Amino acid sequence: MVLDEATVDALRAQLPRVASVVVAEVMQQVPAYDVPFQGRMGKIIERAVQVSLASFVTLAGGAAPQGAPVGVGVAAARELGQAEAQRGRPVEALLSAYRVGASAAWRELSVEAIAAGVDAATLGRFAELVFTYIDELSAASVAGHNQQTSSAERERLVQLDRLTRGLLTGLPELALDEAVAAAGWVPPRTLTAVLVERDRVLTTAGVLDPRTLTLVEDLPGADDHAVLLVPDSGGRSRARLLEVLAGHDAIVGPARPWAEVSGSYARALSAVALRRSGVLDTDAVLPELVLHADPSALADLREVTLAPFADLPEETAERLKDTLRAWLLLQGRRELVAETLHVHPQTVRYRMNQVRDLYGERLADPDEVFALVLALGR
């Protein structure tokens, strides 16, 4: 026992006043608490101060076994730490409040203890008990703050994962708005889907905007990839995105309004078949993507449209196809065709005479020419 029963009773009688002084000084000296405590938070803090003081005075009177936990005082401190984390306050602000509160409480209680006749030695032990108790309350509040922060962060990550999956699968507008609210996410103007291999997602994400959304597991339509949804990387910002990704194997879809990013993701998926090392910008390979959008239809088109070459030796057929492709793309300018193929212009004339023998008037038909351009596309 540090204090006798009469002193404890005298201190208990002063607890409401001391609690008011503690709260007032915390509001005055700690910037984070410079407004009146109101609502649920105000009640929690008021209760925490009163319970902590009452619990401490009981401990000082020896009612609790030595070394026993401080009971409700610690529980209130833990609850206060959790409440502060919910409000987004850093734990440092709370610890500052404890230091200010401890000084104020000690000043007021020591005056009462001296008035009750407590000697100097006992007053010294009383002071030690005050600050040891505050340390215990501080530790409890830190634990409560950390617990709430960890729990909130886990929940936030779960909600962001659900939001990302919803964006990729094209959730209806109402469901998407609910997912955004649940995740506490602030939508950017646009999102750009970037596909990377799973084992490279962390290194790639590290060079991107920290607001980037990531989905690795159970990716719809691309189980062997991860996706990164990069905010505000359209227009002039796209060049910066491609520059940042240099050195990272990635497929970059087009920028889309954030709620329509499933279209960017679908475009990136369609480019997987064109995969090459480094960065593949889908905006730069649109003709190839269109050409390979339906492989079966393309195969049938080639079989029908290129049928005149079927009876020729393979090498001859390939030379004539290359010549016809260049002729069509260069609009029949023989000198340019020869330069492109690295042959003599007379060779171009000879080969094209062979092609005309195979196709006849079909080369003058715009629809046939269009089909040939597609069929001869790379």
Rank of each mutant, 00 (worst) to 15 (best):
S141F: 02
L330G: 00
L280D: 00
V355D: 05
V244M: 08
D34Y: 03
G88L: 09
A19G: 12
S96G: 12
A48H: 10
L329S: 04
V348H: 01
E108D: 15
Q66A: 15
A179R: 11
A93R: 02
R165W: 06
E128H: 08
V355C: 00
R189V: 13
A77K: 04
L176K: 09
D161H: 14
L160I: 04
L274Q: 06
A140V: 11
V279S: 08
S141W: 06
P188N: 05
R165Y: 08
Y133T: 15
F126E: 03
D199E: 15
G278Q: 06
A326F: 00
V207M: 13
S264R: 04
R275P: 07
V207A: 12
V35Y: 13
L219W: 02
R162K: 13
L109Q: 11
V373L: 03
G263N: 09
D249F: 11
A48Q: 02
A54H: 10
R349F: 07
A255N: 03
A63C: 01
G166D: 06
S150F: 12
A239H: 13
V35W: 10
M1G: 11
H225K: 05
G263I: 00
V194E: 01
T204A: 13
L202E: 15
P36T: 12
G124M: 13
S52P: 01
L167N: 03
E155A: 11
R40T: 13
E92R: 14
E155I: 10
R378G: 00
P90V: 11
G253R: 02
A297C: 10
F126Y: 13
D357L: 08
V279H: 08
W185I: 00
L320V: 07
A182G: 03
P36G: 10
R302I: 00
A299T: 14
A299C: 08
A205P: 08
A175F: 07
G235M: 05
S52Q: 13
V111Y: 12
A64V: 15
T316V: 13
S110G: 10
A175Y: 05
E136C: 12
N353L: 11
V261R: 06
L191S: 04
A6C: 06
T190K: 01
S262I: 06
V21E: 14
G235F: 01
V227S: 01
V130L: 07
P187L: 09
D135V: 05
G278S: 04
H248I: 08
Q28D: 15
Y98R: 00
T282H: 01
V227W: 00
